[in-house]
Write a protein that binds this DNA or RNA. Structure first.
Lengths: 151, 151
DNA sequence: GTAATTTCTAAACCTAACTTTAGGTCAAGG
DNA sequence: CCTTGACCTAAAGTTAGGTTTAGAAATTAC
């Protein structure tokens, strides 16, 4: 066993359940910053287990890695984050999640009124909401339903 | 103007807001099946506007294209779908959406109790629920948080 | 001291859902 | 008729989030 000079990437992987390749990828994306031992291998703090757990939870909530990086930027840089620190940035996640839930519930309600009734063909359709449309990196405008009521 | 022998792909694109390339891609994925005019160009029914609208709505709800294809398979093959037909497959979407909302609400509740309190480090954590973890095509098991309470 | 693990980097590969490009054809207007 | 714009196919490129591979160096185990 190493003389307790931090965790190796493999140890961190088995503690988090992530693949080693994923951990290195997250480092490349700026989500985690290990130091190197004399031989050039990555070494992690025990607090990084929690950091990666947070990343995984945030991903479930639908955040992209850049977004997670932003959220993590709210943690203190030079000391180990405290429970208070985690709770603070957790609030940010909560807001994000609330928005996603609200959007889906609104979509569900509209589904009942729109597809549910089979009309599905009007600009006045509540599902026609550009804000909800996935901001697909693709080009051009997207909207729902043509304007031909008789289709 | 063509003598009303169906819509061209460009016309369908402008009616739905989709890119022409996307419509052709959907055809390759089996989501829509135009016929060809004598010159070999695609021609669509007016009902296909609704079909593509349904695809876009289902995408917002998080369905993949293969999943949407499955749902669309519930439509009649040889006649234009009626409002009743659309309402019927719309019910399938509704179930899917309900599940997603339930999952997110459960995650939010757990977030309050877990990250919210800053503990974030236990196998007994409610966020440790393999069922919710994205079925990432990637390898191996994934779980949240190591088992070291003191981290 | 040697063998078996781990780790290292860089680059290639993977899936989903499309877009872009290249080179050629079809259709509609004047 | 001829030009312009819409369309055709096939293949390659794109983004996100990783994984796999290859060859070399560090570490650990016996």
């Amino acid at each position: 066993m190493p003389v307790s000079e931090g965790l190796s990437v493999g140890a961190l992987a088995s503690r988090t359940g992530l693949a080693v390749s994923a951990i290195r990828y997250y480092e490349a994306q700026g989500l985690i910053a290990p130091w190197r031992n004399p031989g050039g291998q990555r070494r992690y703090q025990r607090a990084d287990i929690r950091r990666l757990s947070f990343v995984m939870i945030a991903q479930q909530f639908g955040l992209s890695l850049p977004e997670i990086r932003e959220v993590l930027a709210g943690l203190p840089d030079k000391r180990t984050p405290t429970p208070r620190d985690w709770a603070r940035i957790g609030k940010g996640l909560r807001v994000h999640l609330d928005q996603r839930i609200d959007t889906l519930i609104r979509l569900r309600d509209n589904l009942d009124g729109c597809i549910g009734c089979g009309c599905l063909s009007l600009p006045k359709c509540a599902l026609y909401n550009p804000d909800d449309r996935a901001k697909s990196k693709g080009s051009g405008p997207r909207y729902l339903m043509g304007d031909a009521p008789e289709d």
